[in-house]
Every structure is written in C-alpha cells, then in structure tokens.
C-alpha cells in the first residue's frame, strides 16, 4: 500500500493495514517465553522480568512452564551433555511458530566451560537459533535488545512467497531428533539440518600468499 496514502488516511482517523502487518504485529507483541532456566543466565532472565527492567513492556511477561503454551525458548545458561536431550525435546514440544534466543556465552559456544568434557559447545548444534546474546551473563538490557531484535525479525515475515518463514512451509521440519547420551558423547553429535561445521579455506596453505616467508 502506498505509504503516503496510508499516512493521509491516518490523519483522517482511518487505519489501513494489510493482513500480513496485522498478523506480524499480533505475533511480535505477545511472545510468551518458556519458563526455562539452566544456569547463571536464568537469574538475569528473571531480573529482566522484574520491576526494574520489566519485560512486560514488550508483551513478553507471561512465562509459561509448559512448552505447549510457549512461543519462545530462552536457552539461558550452560547446556551440558546430560541436559541437551531435554532441551531438544522441549523445543520439539513447542508449537509453531517458535523462536529461540541463545542467551550467554555458554549457550552460544560452551563459554568459559568449553574445555570441559560435559559441556555442549553451543545449542545451535541441535536447534535453530534466532538471536544470540553474548555476555557472561548478559545484562538484562542485552536480553531486552534481543527481544527487540526478535520482534523486528517477526515484523519482517512474509506470509506468502518463497521467503515465508518456516512455520508456513509445510515441508520444513519443526521437530528434530533428540540426541541420546551414550557411552562417550551425545549421539548424534550434531543436527546436520541446522548446523554445519565452519568451513576453513585451506587452499592458501603451503603457498607464499599468506606473506609469511
């Protein structure tokens, strides 16, 4: 719709909108997070919902203990190999559309505990993540920023066309296989549908192009 016409109409007290804008506005304004804390970051997540930072301003104060009622999973803390299967299972139990915020260094990559034998090196190996927040733990303002970022992302969703989000494409998977805690490590070690090992360009190795010799 023509932006000029829209603003002209608004001056007359008429709001004109499209179904897509209305849909996205409704979605982004009532994101219900899963009441799910793992470690230190969960305390900052709770602090974000409390009086000073007040997540309710963004329509997201209704923390639901049940994944069936939640739209957003905030992976707040260290995911250990014992806990990773339950995290993936909870993600599978959430109804579409669902979003994931990976909060803190541990959920991104294992953080300070990355060298440990029992710590998962990032939850994005198993489930798709929408927003990453660095920090150990991130401040409540950082979580609010992630919320706003997620809201912008939802606002830009197309309801039709090839660029439409996952939950509107019937052929896209919304559940992933739950890893099992086996003898030595989690099996499988990663979910190939969402995570690929970072590519390292080795074509220059052994030549003089690096400028070293």
């Amino acid at each position: 719709m023509d932006e000029q016409l829209k603003s002209e109409l608004r001056r007359q007290g008429v709001v004109a909108t499209s179904l897509q804008e209305l849909y996205n506005w409704g979605r982004k304004s009532s994101i219900w997070p899963l009441n799910f804390g793992l470690a230190c970051c969960a305390i900052e997540m709770i602090a974000t919902t409390m009086a000073r930072y007040d997540l309710a301003r963004f329509g997201a104060e209704v923390f639901r203990p049940s994944p069936r009622q939640a739209d957003l999973m905030i992976v707040a803390g260290t995911v250990t190999k014992k806990m990773a299967p339950q995290v993936v299972r909870l993600y599978n139990q959430m109804a579409e559309p669902k979003y994931v915020i990976s909060m803190g260094a541990c959920a991104i990559s294992g953080g300070p505990f990355k060298q440990g034998y029992n710590v998962l090196k990032g939850i994005d190996r198993y489930i798709p993540v929408d927003v990453f927040i660095p920090g150990c733990p991130p401040r409540p303002e950082a979580l609010l920023d992630a919320f706003l970022m997620l809201q912008r992302k939802i606002d830009e969703q197309q309801l039709t066309g090839p660029a439409r989000p996952r939950h509107l494409q019937a052929e896209q998977p919304s559940e992933f296989s739950v890893p099992q805690y086996s003898e030595h490590d989690l099996v499988p070690t990663r979910n190939d549908a969402v995570w690929h090992a970072p590519l390292v360009n080795i074509s220059n190795a052994g030549t003089n192009e690096s400028g070293r010799d």
């Binding site: 470690a39 230190c40 260290t78 250990t80 014992k82 339950q86 034998y117 029992n118």
Partner: peptide
C-alpha cells in the same frame, strides 16, 4: 544436569585463573 567440570578445569588453570570460575 549442570555438571560443568569446575574442579577438573581448575586443576588445569593457574591459581588466579580459577577465580572467575568460582563466581559461577
């Protein structure tokens, strides 16, 4: 479910290097 190998990591860190881990 939150076993983060604190003691094992500390045995490989310097004494001062373990201080931030005790925060957690």
């Amino acid at each position: 479910y939150l076993h983060r190998n604190h003691e094992k990591i500390a045995e490989h860190e310097t004494y001062l290097g373990s201080m931030p881990y005790t925060d957690r």
